[in-house]
Simulated assay, not measured.
Amino acid sequence: MMSKQGAALQTYNNELVKCIEELCSKRDEVNRQVQQEEEEKARLQHDIRILTEKLSRVNESLARRLASRAELDRTIAETEAAYMKVRVWL
């Protein structure tokens, strides 16, 4: 009877050890995936920072060019208006 219980206990022990090993293996795989995703996250955050800086520079340049264009539009309109007044007298 005791050897039967001992054999059953050994079987349970072996199954438990196998289960723990499988869980450890799964944990290692999940840990590897976590590390990969953390690396990807860091790359993406770096890319976002670089692109945000580029976007800021482009926005600043665009604002300057839009202001310059508006000033040129005003100058052209004023010059055309003055030309039309002179032309009337010719």
Rank of each mutant, 00 (worst) to 15 (best):
M1G: 09
M2C: 12
S3E: 15
S3I: 10
K4N: 13
K4A: 14
K4Y: 06
K4M: 13
Q5N: 12
G6Q: 15
G6Y: 15
A7P: 03
A7L: 05
A8P: 02
L9I: 03
L9V: 13
Q10D: 09
T11N: 11
Y12E: 13
Y12D: 13
Y12S: 15
Y12I: 14
N13I: 05
N13D: 15
N13E: 15
E15I: 02
E15H: 06
V17C: 12
K18E: 11
K18A: 13
K18T: 04
C19Q: 14
I20E: 14
I20D: 05
I20R: 15
I20C: 02
E21C: 07
E22F: 07
E22V: 03
E22H: 04
L23F: 06
L23C: 02
L23E: 11
L23R: 04
L23S: 06
C24R: 15
S25E: 13
K26Y: 11
K26H: 03
K26P: 02
K26Q: 03
R27L: 10
R27S: 08
D28W: 12
D28E: 07
E29L: 01
N31I: 01
N31S: 05
N31G: 02
R32S: 13
R32H: 08
Q33K: 10
Q33T: 03
Q33A: 10
Q33S: 04
Q33L: 05
V34Y: 03
V34C: 01
Q35S: 06
Q35I: 08
Q36E: 15
Q36Y: 12
Q36K: 15
E37H: 14
E38Y: 10
E38V: 10
E38T: 00
E38Q: 04
E40H: 10
E40N: 12
K41L: 14
K41S: 10
K41C: 03
A42F: 09
A42I: 06
A42Y: 09
A42P: 02
R43L: 08
R43G: 02
L44W: 03
Q45P: 03
Q45V: 11
H46T: 12
H46L: 12
R49I: 09
I50Y: 03
L51Q: 05
E53W: 07
E53D: 12
E53M: 09
E53I: 00
K54I: 05
K54T: 07
K54E: 07
K54L: 11
L55N: 12
L55M: 09
L55Y: 03
S56P: 11
S56C: 06
R57K: 13
V58E: 07
V58F: 09
N59Y: 01
N59V: 01
S61H: 07
L62Y: 05
L62T: 02
A63K: 10
R65Y: 10
R65P: 01
L66N: 14
A67M: 13
S68H: 14
R69T: 14
R69A: 09
E71R: 00
L72P: 06
R74Y: 02
R74P: 04
I76M: 05
I76A: 00
A77S: 00
A77R: 08
E78I: 05
E78T: 07
T79K: 06
E80F: 09
E80A: 01
E80N: 09
A81E: 01
A81G: 13
A82Y: 05
A82L: 04
Y83R: 08
Y83Q: 09
M84T: 07
M84Q: 14
M84K: 14
K85P: 01
V86L: 15
V88W: 09
W89H: 14
L90G: 14
L90S: 12
